[in-house]
């Protein structure tokens, strides 16, 4: 059985070239060649925002989906997208996968939630020194996702929507003053030449889920389903993201070591100020989840316990 695997990263990106490759090859091997894959990278089968519907409708059999792209649709998973939730995204991926496997069927129809993972935490990269959340007021930020966009407007700043390849231009010409991004990708897009100040503090991570079309899963033999199940675990969530994680972390360390870059160490007070500034976002999240008919407190508690167990909770 050949499965169509759709994602929206370029083929050469660290995740498809390490994690996806390892995962798909391992499944093919474990199934004795019964399951193999046809990769459709770079939005070849549909736009990044449509990847959930693509896998739910069988356009793709497997899709790598950012639930945060469909605002309001997957409120539970939004908890992960908020700033200052997960500090260690590698072990956090395992905890988050076990957490979201419990809850995904309350908000995702037609799919099997295989695993969910983030990337090495992104932070704020700016052209000048930013230490305190109050400084964001009056600035224009290119946000990484809609949670960060909400955060920016919460802080009194403006967001500007620029596609990743055009971001460098936007920053160098003053359309934007700062950007939230994982560090390695900052280098990848040449943004580091302009933003030389980086906050040494895991701010956020964008979380993406690997989803399998329900029918495609049910049509598999019991043995094949077992193979898939063995690859939809917390351990695999960590494993799939490791290569990308390293690429982003290396970028971060490069900034730390480079004389051209300033890594801003925040004082405890400043860190608390940032966390407090994000508190309204958590409250808004709780409100959304509640109105969708779920219990935000138990969801949050469940996630925090699981994250604490592997020492991945941001606190």
């Amino acid at each position: 059985q050949t499965l169509r695997f759709a994602h929206w990263l370029p083929e050469q990106h660290a995740l498809p070239s390490t994690g996806f490759k390892e995962w798909t090859e391992s499944i093919t091997e474990a199934s004795g060649g019964a399951i193999d894959f046809q990769m459709f990278p770079a939005q070849q089968l549909g736009s990044a925002e449509d990847h959930f519907d693509m896998v739910a409708n069988g356009i793709a059999d497997i899709a790598w989906v950012n639930p945060g792209y469909s605002a309001g649709r997957f409120p539970i998973s939004d908890l992960l997208q908020l700033p200052f939730v997960v500090s260690d995204t590698l072990n956090g991926a395992a905890a988050a996968t076990k957490w979201y496997q419990q809850h995904a069927d309350q908000e995702m129809d037609g799919v099997v939630m295989c695993l969910i993972h983030g990337h090495y935490p992104g932070t704020l990269h700016a052209k000048e020194e930013i230490r305190h959340p109050d400084q964001i007021s009056g600035m224009t930020i290119r946000p990484a996702n809609s949670s960060i966009a909400n955060f920016v407007s919460e802080l009194g700043g403006a967001s500007v929507q620029v596609a990743a390849p055009e971001t460098r231009e936007a920053l160098s010409r003053g359309v934007a003053d700062a950007i939230t991004f994982p560090s390695g990708s900052t280098i990848l897009f040449g943004i580091d030449e302009i933003t030389t100040y980086h906050i040494e503090f895991p701010m956020y991570s964008s979380w993406q889920a690997l989803l399998i079309n329900q029918n495609a899963y049910q049509q598999m033999s019991a043995e094949q389903q077992d193979v898939i199940d063995d690859h939809c675990t917390g351990e695999w969530a960590t494993r799939i993201t490791r290569g990308w994680e390293e690429m982003e972390r290396e970028g971060h360390e490069q900034f730390r070591d480079s004389p051209d870059h300033t890594m801003i160490e925040l004082s405890d007070e400043e860190m608390t100020a940032w966390r407090d500034a994000a508190e309204p976002l958590r409250e808004a999240w709780a409100e959304r989840v509640r109105s969708a008919g779920h219990d935000p407190d138990s969801l949050r508690q469940d996630l925090e316990e699981r994250l604490s167990e592997v020492d991945a909770l941001a606190d």
Binding site: R4, G46, S47, D50, D53, M54, N57, G58, I59
Partner: peptide, 14 residues
């Protein structure tokens, strides 16, 4: 190449 449902899914989203 795939299925009618998938094709109509493309027509609904794209």
């Amino acid at each position: 190449v795939t299925s009618l449902d998938a094709a109509l899914g493309v027509l609904a989203t794209s």
